[in-house]
Write a protein that binds this DNA or RNA. Structure first.
Length: 434
DNA sequence: TCTGGGGTCCTAGGACCC
DNA sequence: TCTGGGGTCCTAGGACCC
């Protein structure tokens, strides 16, 4: 599936939104400007985005809401996540950035790589123009890092964020080896892209404390003691590309839909509702990328945090033939659920994962002599397309499979006490201001 | 009372085969 | 019949990312 990769370019920018989710909320509520704001995860569980003002209050990433709630008295504003809004703002931001170069790799909801190779002018100037245009046209503040490799672009972006005198743009491309090492010798190794919470301490213990240390470490040793991934990171830090460039998004190989519940769930019937809804959502994503799944995994678990009877289990249910039909996926998911469910436990979370995901080749091309009758399959495909269209136009609750139907007070539904209106995505919310 | 969701890639080890 | 070596495929688990 990696058909759309090519050799990486030699001048790469990494552009990302500062405190992206918070910035999206501020665009539509300018009164939040200058105030400490955080966005909460699903179920208002913990902080997943923080403005500079909120960071200054000492709120760490992932801080549980119940522990920082008291900061509201000091002006903290907490908002429930509104992913429809963030997705919409992301589309706008990516379109504006894409005007600067045809080669753009969207890496996550708030960041993208951009190939600047061959564009006229110094990287600093280009980066500054990108920042200004995104701020003016979309309202999102960004930082731009530029380097000879993706890893260096990420690192430059990190410097652009942490050193105010750079004014949001840092260009490490075109530096000689010695200059480059000087530029990165104060960056802690744990801030390097690809070094996480396990590798960081381990590297530090063996004397590799900075990005420059990692760049200059013996690659064979890195490869032997850690992995090929880390050896490639070291290579990239020296300005030698080791990570491919992807022009087009590669289709997902697995598709998940999973949620923690608002309140613990004991009933099989309630779990069935939740799993049915998760399966429908996953199936929509599957059809959107025009794939089929060969197996369905279901899992349920009690809370990781509460003491008491603990149970977690998952089941993989293979399908007779790859499919994208909600009804078939649902049958598999529910049979998996029944096989792992045990009465008497307070379940806190359930999830559905579609596996063996591959392109949706026409039924006739599968060469199945005794395969499914193509006519019902075609009918099913048309029905699914209509359902997806209606749900997209009128909101995702428009058409649901019967087993997912539930009242508005279902225990497993998410808590979202701090939800802002859907300004950009729902007609009913358009008018309100501030 | 109260701690998110959705992905990728690599590796080690077992099963199986010649 | 006391018994090597190499290859492939699959899976579970761990590391990372946002």
């Amino acid at each position: 599936m990696g058909a759309q990769t090519r050799r990486p370019p030699s001048r790469i920018a990494l552009i990302d939104g500062n405190s992206f989710y918070c910035a999206c909320e501020r665009v539509l509520r300018p009164a939040l400007e200058g105030r400490p704001v955080i966005v909460l995860s699903n179920n208002d569980g913990c902080a997943i985005a923080r403005t500079a003002e909120a960071k200054a209050m000492g709120i760490p990433m992932g801080a549980p809401w119940f522990r920082i709630q008291h900061l509201q008295a000091r002006g903290l504003v907490a908002l429930s996540a509104n992913f429809a809004l963030y997705g919409d703002m992301s589309d706008r931001m990516m379109r504006v950035i894409g005007q600067f170069s045809p080669a753009q790799e969207i890496y996550s909801i708030d960041e993208c790589f951009l190939d600047l190779t061959g564009l006229p002018g110094p990287g600093r100037d280009i980066g500054t123009r990108i920042r200004q245009r995104v701020l003016r046209w979309v309202g999102i503040p960004t930082c731009v890092g530029i380097g000879a490799t993706k890893t260096l672009a990420k690192l430059a972006n990190h410097l652009a964020k942490s050193l105010p005198r750079l004014q949001g743009v840092c260009d490490l491309s075109g530096l000689g080896r010695a200059e480059l090492m000087r530029a990165i010798r104060h960056v802690p190794v744990r801030d390097v892209w690809g070094v996480g919470r396990r590798l960081g301490p381990s590297l530090e213990a063996s004397g590799i404390r900075t990005a420059a240390d990692l760049a200059q470490a013996d690659r064979h040793v890195l490869r032997r003691r850690y992995s090929i991934v880390l050896a490639k990171t070291a290579q990239e830090l020296c300005g030698e590309p080791a990570i491919d460039w992807e022009d087009a998004p590669t289709p997902r190989q697995q598709i998940m839909s999973t949620r923690s519940f608002g309140l613990p769930v004991r009933d099989l019937a309630e779990l069935e509702q939740a799993v049915s809804l998760f399966t429908s959502r996953a199936a929509e994503k599957l059809r959107r990328q025009q794939s089929r799944a060969g197996a369905v995994q279901v899992y349920i678990r009690t809370s990781r945090f509460r003491t008491g009877p603990w149970h977690a289990d998952s089941a993989v249910v293979p399908l007779d033939a790859p499919t994208d039909a909600t009804s078939m996926l649902l049958r598999a998911a529910l049979s998996g659920l029944r096989s792992v469910f045990r009465p008497g436990f307070d379940y806190a979370k359930a999830g559905v994962c579609l596996l063996d995901v591959g392109p949706a080749a026409p039924v006739a091309m599968q060469g199945e002599l005794f395969g499914p009758d193509p006519e019902p399959a075609a009918k099913s495909a048309r029905a699914m397309a209509v359902v997806d269209q209606l749900n997209q136009r009128f909101g995702s609750r428009m058409i649901q499979v019967a087993s997912a139907l539930h009242g508005p007070d279902a225990r497993w539904q998410m808590r979202q006490a701090h939800r802002s209106p859907n300004y950009t995505t729902a007609w009913g919310d358009v008018v309100r201001v501030g």
